[in-house]
Design a protein around this nucleic acid. Structure first.
Lengths: 156, 156
DNA sequence: CTCCCAACCGAACGATCGTTAGGCTGAGTG
DNA sequence: CACTCAGCCTAACGATCGTTCGGTTGGGAG
């Protein structure tokens, strides 16, 4: 398809970015919706990381816009998008907070730092994950390291 | 300064990118050079993370090129840069490997996953860290989480 | 005082980018 | 069969980008 033909489907380049950004936000939130809100928090964290990495590998274009290209959005669209992004981060943070409050994670856990560390790893994946790569195992390795750390031995 | 005036100092835009990419690689390697190669591995990991985040906060432009914009390098320059980048990652991985082999970290540690997780967090920082931010404390929070995990209690 | 030289300005060039508009094609529909 | 319509191509427009080049400025050095 030639570049001009694209304009039979979109209004402007900025509109296209906005559409893709919304699709990306929806994809990541949908992945989080699949995570049960009952059961062991540890399993839910694992599921959330799996879901995120799946979106990255299966819809790399969406993920790239969601994680980086969104900053070329302008004005109100940018603000609206950022609110969705913050909500996504907050949903992640809530997982860690709940795990701590329920006694499944250490009582002195800083949920902001925990979410930042987990989401940094998840977000950074868009730079090197290739489409179609198997990601569940990778997500589980991350989860295991995040939960049990590098020092001492696993309690599982 | 007008855009044209820049060409009194550089040959081309591509050359400028190449210079900055080399400066960035040098800055990150120099930060790693400051990490002692003796002493507890755990302290060296902390120092390495501190060093990386310091470069990000103090030289955000260099860090941005080192972590993302390098991919607009072409041909041989790109390959040369990527070799330096891989060497940087390998130096990180070696820290975790040594920690495992010396018994300071768990014996079943996957040093590749560990380095990937730590460097993902360190790299992602360029998207949100603002220049001049205090980073040592952040690096230490990351280090603590990575070492001891979110489950159980710290052994320190 | 004159000259030099580094550093920047200002205008212009071709190339690329975002966008528009008109035309072609081919698979339905009546 | 004529007609529609979605989907693509092609050529062109103004704007921006990377780059060049001659000119201007403001300090030193002789």
């Amino acid at each position: 398809m030639q570049k001009g033909s694209l304009y039979a489907h979109i209004e402007s380049k900025a509109d296209l970015l906005w559409e893709v950004a919304r699709d990306g936000a929806a994809a990541f939130h949908r992945a989080l919706d699949e995570v049960p809100d009952e059961g062991p928090v540890i399993e839910r964290i694992r599921a959330a990381l799996r879901g995120h990495l799946r979106v990255v590998a299966d819809q790399l274009d969406l993920a790239t816009v969601f994680t980086r290209e969104w900053r070329y959005l302008a004005g109100e669209r940018r603000e609206t998008f950022l609110a969705e992004r913050r909500r996504y981060e907050e949903r992640f943070r809530a997982l860690f907070r709940e795990g701590r409050d329920l006694g499944e994670l250490r009582s002195d856990l800083d949920d902001s730092t925990a979410a930042l560390l987990a989401l940094s790893a998840a977000n950074w994946a868009y730079t090197w994950l290739r489409p179609g790569a198997p990601t569940d195992e990778l997500a589980d390795r991350f989860t295991s390291l995040l939960l049990d750390g590098m020092r001492g031995y696993s309690s599982r």
